[in-house]
């Protein structure tokens, strides 16, 4: 499977994503400079974490105007898989590929720690090897992960089963304490209606090897590979 890892000025998890898909999962992986306009050679496009354009103005606001984003929109329209992690999700929100917006964490601090998230929908290309209600342990590292959407939008997300991950405690319950950033309903990841564009705050690429303290992130990449194999 061919993965393209987009590099915006200020991306800093590009190498980690490349390592996860290219080395850990031994797939074809290629860095894509943000000025590229043709992504048709890839099966899956990853928008990695980081601080694209320094997160100046708003996280992701400037990156969405990079030339590559036109191609991302185009490939998403063709049904290619697009995975936005952390800053990547923020960019997808700013680009309108996913609904809602990101606010600063409610405690106003950057937060880096391992958190539990519950899998809400296993009927997606990114989660098909898991089961609903499964609790994953994944690292988070962000200052703006406080997801917001208006009530109408939230109802729509719920109705369409677009909420893929929620922050929970170790026993799988949503609570204020289990929520690291104030995100609405503990939302930690959502998918588009077509089911091929996922945005998530936790970093699955940082949890793919035993030596890094956890492997729950493998589920995302194994699912992508399995789903693609079945196509």
């Amino acid at each position: 499977m061919r993965f393209g890892v987009v590099v915006f000025p200020g991306s800093n998890c590009d190498a980690d994503c490349h390592h996860a898909v290219g080395t850990v999962f031994a797939q074809e992986a290629e860095y894509v400079w943000h000025e590229e306009k043709d992504l048709s050679r890839f099966d899956c496009i990853i928008l990695p974490g980081g601080f694209s354009y320094g997160d100046y103005l708003r996280a992701g606001a400037l990156a969405r105007f990079s030339p590559v984003m036109g191609a991302v929109v185009e490939e998403a329209g063709r049904g290619k898989l697009v995975l936005g992690i952390c800053n990547g999700w923020q960019i997808l929100l700013e680009a309108g590929l996913l609904p809602g917006a990101m606010l600063k964490n409610n405690h106003l601090q950057f937060r880096c720690e391992t958190r539990h998230v519950r899998l809400e929908n296993s009927n997606t290309p990114f989660t098909c090897t898991g089961h609903e209600g499964q609790v994953l342990s994944l690292p988070i590292a962000h200052a703006e992960g406080n997801y917001y959407i208006d009530q109408v939008g939230l109802k729509d997300l719920e109705a369409q089963r677009q909420i893929v991950f929620r922050y929970v405690d170790s026993r799988g319950r949503v609570s204020k304490e289990a929520n690291p950033n104030g995100s609405l309903g503990g939302i930690a990841g959502i998918i588009n209606k077509a089911g091929n564009v996922l945005g998530m705050m936790p970093h699955p690429e940082r949890a793919t090897e035993e030596i890094l303290g956890g492997t729950d992130g493998r589920l995302i990449f194994s699912s992508i590979l399995q789903w693609w194999g079945g196509q």
């Binding site: 708003r58 929100l93 609904p99 809602g100 917006a101 917001y148 959407i149 208006d150």
Partner: peptide
């Protein structure tokens, strides 16, 4: 287009 995010 850029300076404000109409969602929030």
């Amino acid at each position: 287009r850029l300076l404000a995010n109409p969602v929030i």
